[in-house]
Computed example of a mutant assay.
Amino acid sequence: MAWFRGAAIWLAVLAWLIPAATARGAEGGTLSRVRETGVIVIGYRPASLPFSYLDAQLRPTGYSVELCERVIATVREKLGLPDLEVRRVEVASATRMPLVINGTLDMECGITTHTAERARSQSFSLTIFVAETRLLARAGDRVQSLADLRGRPVASTIGTTSIQHLAKVNEQQNLGIRILGGLDDPEGFQLLRSGRAAAFLMDDVVLRSLLAQQGPGADDYRLSDQALTIEPYAIGLRKGDPQFKALVDEVLAGLYRSGEIHAIYRRWFESPLPSQGLNLKLPMSAAFRRVIANPTDSPDPERYR
């Protein structure tokens, strides 16, 4: 059922993807269009703590959203638009990239891995976080790799690099895994909680966030020690707009150079989350510290080892 619903979303998006892309593409660069319309559009995720979620007043907030807001502040100043309107569009794993590609979104401010394949159809900012994919299973199961799940059902989230990796390894190693897809991360986790899946494959920071929301129930689950892939996150941008990408990258690089990124990181990963009260207590990784010291927009996982 989840796969069917996911396919329906894709078909709905693709139905208007090409004509919308043509119309938006004719309008020129992002900054020119924002100057003319007085509007900038960002995409957000409603439940992807701590990167992008809705606060108690149902306003988008989070680490990625804050970084995008820093970019918006610079756009206001650069274009002399103090009353610049910010339109916020809810996205899901399956819809976020099509909405960037066709120009509906000026920035996608959620959790998206920059890959070489994705970069063929859209652009990405400098890396803003480095995650690793891991398996989450019941505490009683000793699950460290996909090979440990041979012949069993495994969940992931539709439209993610995690489910792509799961399908690839399943085929290459002939594991006979039955892949279950959630439309979003909470739904993917629910497949594990309900017993329909033996494990949930997703980025470690997402898994830690989901576990933090379980309270004492988090002890019922265990993350694999072994990381399966490296995932450099970035802000999604339209392809073929180097001027806007340069502006976004300079805002991020400025936060890295000044060291302000450390305070921003602590606010979202090492402190109680606004309107949530959850604290992930997740120190900055060595990989992201290296990005801050030497900013990069590389999609190559080896660049972050």
Rank of each mutant, 00 (worst) to 15 (best):
L67C: 11
F129V: 08
R35G: 06
C68S: 13
P19K: 07
A15N: 07
Q173M: 11
S93M: 14
R305F: 08
K281Q: 14
R303C: 13
I264F: 02
P98H: 07
R70T: 05
P153G: 03
I40A: 01
K168M: 15
T95G: 05
T115D: 07
T157H: 13
K281E: 13
T30M: 11
V41C: 09
L79C: 02
A137W: 00
K168L: 15
L146S: 02
G254K: 14
D141F: 06
G254W: 08
S156H: 06
R59V: 09
S194V: 13
R178A: 05
T296H: 02
I111D: 06
D300K: 12
R59I: 05
L273I: 03
V75M: 00
V205G: 01
C68G: 13
P301V: 10
A137N: 00
G176C: 06
A20K: 09
K239H: 15
R120T: 03
P82I: 12
P301L: 11
A94W: 04
A263Q: 08
A47N: 15
E171S: 15
R59M: 09
D83G: 09
I179Q: 02
T127G: 01
Y304D: 00
G151L: 07
E90Y: 08
E250R: 11
D241Q: 06
L31P: 01
Y265E: 08
P186I: 01
M107G: 04
A198E: 14
G62K: 02
P274M: 09
A94F: 10
V206E: 03
D220M: 15
A23P: 06
T113F: 05
F124E: 01
Y304V: 00
T112D: 11
R152N: 08
P46Q: 12
R134M: 01
S156W: 04
I42S: 06
G62Q: 05
T30K: 07
V34H: 04
Q213G: 10
L14Y: 13
R33M: 09
L84I: 05
W16T: 12
Y265M: 11
P242V: 03
R178H: 02
Q190I: 03
S121G: 14
R138H: 14
E85K: 14
A15W: 10
L207W: 01
Y304Q: 00
R267V: 07
A7W: 14
L180Q: 00
K78P: 06
A234T: 03
G80L: 12
R303S: 15
T61F: 02
R59W: 05
G62D: 04
P295M: 02
T127C: 04
R178V: 06
A56Y: 09
I179V: 13
Q214R: 13
S123Y: 03
L278M: 11
E187F: 08
L278I: 15
